[in-house]
């Protein structure tokens, strides 16, 4: 289902961060949000997830308006977040973190849960070996895998990824890029916040350039590849 963001204003208390931001994320495509630190990328994802209220504007998933819904209702609509810094439930085990994700899945029932759990563990076999381990004791790469697995348990139609490869060793970063591409191939609309130019050029079907909370322009994959300097400028590299 298509995610459409229309002229949203978002802020923290009275401090406004986003000003009339608009873009859309198509199913089966990876949409990258690009911008310097503090441009409002994470704020955008939090607003999409219902963690921050809108001051103005509208967010729609297909024909359903989801702006105004609280986060627990947004996730039930099929939107899942892999947050920046992973934000796992560190004192819980790997299995318990996955269980939390399964609870948010629209498909409840023991058989569905078992199937769903096996599916995400097939994607990240290393987690299968560490099910009883406390999440905070995992390596950075394993924590990112768990954060992604937890979100995939929701069986999302829209997956929000906030700098998923930040600080990871190249092989794990590549594995996560492959998973993102595979999810898009399966019809999920992926919204990716990313600072690495290589990742952006490899994955993005379209890119939304944000500066100081405002939309600068939207680029197709082809435009991105033809103007890497434009991307570099907006990433602040």
């Amino acid at each position: 289902m298509m995610l459409r963001v229309e002229s949203i204003d978002v802020g923290y208390g009275t401090a406004q961060v986003l000003y009339g931001l608009s873009f859309s994320a198509q199913p089966g495509q990876i949409t990258c949000l690009l911008g310097r630190n503090g441009a409002g990328k994470t704020t955008t994802l939090h607003a999409l997830m219902g963690l921050l209220p809108l001051m103005a504007g509208e967010i729609r998933l297909g024909s359903t308006t989801i702006s105004g819904l609280a986060a627990p209702d947004v996730v039930k609509q099929g939107i899942a977040l892999v947050p920046q810094g992973r934000r796992l439930f560190g004192a819980l085990s790997v299995a318990e973190n996955i269980e939390i994700g399964l609870m948010a899945s629209p498909k409840q029932g023991k058989t569905e849960h078992r199937r769903n759990r096996s599916r995400v563990l097939e994607l990240f076999p290393r987690l299968k070996e560490r099910l009883g381990q406390q999440a905070s004791t995992l390596s950075g790469g394993e924590q990112q895998m768990l954060a992604t697995a937890r979100a995939l348990c929701v069986e999302p139609q829209v997956l929000l990824l906030d700098e998923p490869t930040e600080g990871l060793q190249p092989s794990i970063a590549q594995q996560l890029r492959d998973v993102s591409r595979e999810l898009a191939r399966q019809g999920v609309a992926v919204v990716l916040v990313e600072q690495h130019l290589d990742t952006v050029l490899e994955l993005a079907d379209s890119a939304v350039l944000i500066e100081s909370g405002r939309l600068v322009r939207t680029l197709s994959a082809e435009q991105l590849k033809n103007n890497p300097s434009l991307v570099t400028r907006h990433l602040g590299i």
Binding site: V75, P83, F89, G90, M103
Partner: peptide
């Protein structure tokens, strides 16, 4: 129990618990 798991998750990160459907 599931209730205990929900309580422990909420204790650790209120926002993330909320993002995973916990009221």
């Amino acid at each position: 129990t599931r209730l205990g798991l929900v309580m422990r998750a909420t204790q650790q990160d209120r926002d993330m618990a909320s993002a995973f459907g916990i009221r």
